[in-house]
Amino acid sequence: MMSKQVRAVVISGNGTNCEREVANACRVAGAEVVDIVHVAELISGRARLDDYHFLNLAGGFLDGDDLGSAKAGANRLTHAAVKGSEETLSDQLQRFIADGKLVMGVCNGFQLMTKMGLLPAIGGDYQRQSATLTFNDGGRFEDRWCYLKVDQESPCVFTRGLDGVYLPVRHGEGKFVVENDELLQQIEEKHLSVVKYCDADYQAPVMEYPLNPNGSVAAIAGVCDESGRLFGLMPHPEAYIHRTHHPRWTREPELPEEGMGLWLYINAVKYIRENLL
């Protein structure tokens, strides 16, 4: 039904902040259609997730994170009924996932996915929350660039071929916590902890501040589901698309034009071309 175009959507509204740069990242990565769609458009029924392959949940402060990061936003998506239909937005979302499409949540988007139960969703249960993101151990919002070690055995389609990336975190509630040790063990065994805060040589995960900016368990910065098609992370890949985004670009002339964050979007577009078109 869809032509041979990679179609990406970025949901905006109620406090999303990064929709424009995420959309730009998708475009630079080669997606032919990239739409920023306000959630009101989805609720009105004029726009439908079904028309896209790649859903981006961008960073921001949904409803001000007033009830805890993304909590009120998750509640809205779960209960908001789509006009002129029997379904809610979360029904559309579950169908989107079942259709084998891609979802990436960054920062507030990762918080949203986790609190809706979309991640890590062990056993494919995308409805039950089993992990969360809470206040940094430092108790403060922080903007800081971090080194991330990639688990190359992870099923994550976004990080294929990568071993380390350097990206900024910009959050106050980025500490990843799981409901119990068994879950953490499963996450690790299944290689769902895709990216971990690590040292500057991308060798070992680090628990100490500031390399680990928030005290996340097992230094986890991002996780995927078992299919590898749903991925969420606190650091901002869309914030490193070009070398001039790098905090030291004026002193590191050898930096490539392409930023490390762009690779994740290129992988997504590549996967869609190979599997969904």
């Binding site: 902040n17 730009n24 914030a239 698309i241 001039t244 030291r248």
Partner: peptide, 23 residues
């Protein structure tokens, strides 16, 4: 104080408030 402010949202901050070998 500077780190408590998001100084790169919107993806356009090319010369940031903190620069140098250790940012």
């Amino acid at each position: 104080v500077v780190r408590r402010y998001d100084h790169e949202v919107q993806g356009g901050t090319v010369v940031k408030p903190l620069v140098g070998v250790a940012n």
